[in-house]
Amino acid sequence: MAVIPLRLGEPPRQLFAMLQPAGGAAPRQHGVLLCNPFGQEAIRAHRLVRVLGDRLAAAGFAVMRFDYYGTGDSGGDDTEGRLPRWIDDIVAVDAVLRSRSGISRTTWIGIRLGASLAVAAAARARPHPERLILWDPITDGAAYLEELASAHASSIRAGSAGLATARRHSRYRTHPPGPDDEALGFPLGESLRADIRDISARSFAQCPSPMTVISSADASPCCRVPTQVERSARVHRIASELEWVAISQMRSAVVPSDALQAVNDALGAGP
């Protein structure tokens, strides 16, 4: 499967992106843009995003996946992450996908925070994306911050549980357990926290593009699908339980087949 690594824009603000040209016997005039979740979740989801990209490219879609500014392999420091900038990134990378692939129709797939960003970016893109596929979108930013805080505190406790020395014990006892400024290995400064806190279901109701929501079993409270979203979106519930921020799962990849099938169904990408 051909892949084309790209660095978009000018240094030092370049974005890393990976273009997968449409493959298969019958290329479609349709592109798919994949929008990552945040921080440790993006690392855990990397395999999923790649597998999704491979399958969609093989089914004839031009696929673009990328890292927001200050994340992954893109330019910028981790402390520079802000949601408005990441929303701009989605719009800009979508334009590159369209121009490089010679297509006008795109569907965006967003995971967790990436889904919320995709909803906010859809109103800004011209033309709007044809459809948004939102996998466990964050619909309550304050609840998401609480989830991150809880997971981070658990990770600190887990780090102090299997220790080797008394010094390590004291180190972890004295380190603040809450994510005052970090979450599961990534900076989470006040500005970014304020951006996230503002996320609510209101923006979903104003989204100009049709939405399909993929909702995992036992999705956390921050991903609850509110009534107003249920009214305006197709909601596809899957059986897989995905603990996106579970510390016990930090080193594992996640590629649930029912979610991939739900994406295929939403795109009409089946054989």
Binding site: Q40, I43, H46, R47, T71, G72, D73, D78, L184, G185, F186, R251, S252, A253
Partner: peptide
């Protein structure tokens, strides 16, 4: 391990 080239918590970058 399973982490891609950016390394755990992006440490390689």
């Amino acid at each position: 391990g399973l982490v891609h080239r950016i390394g755990p918590h992006r440490i390689n970058v």
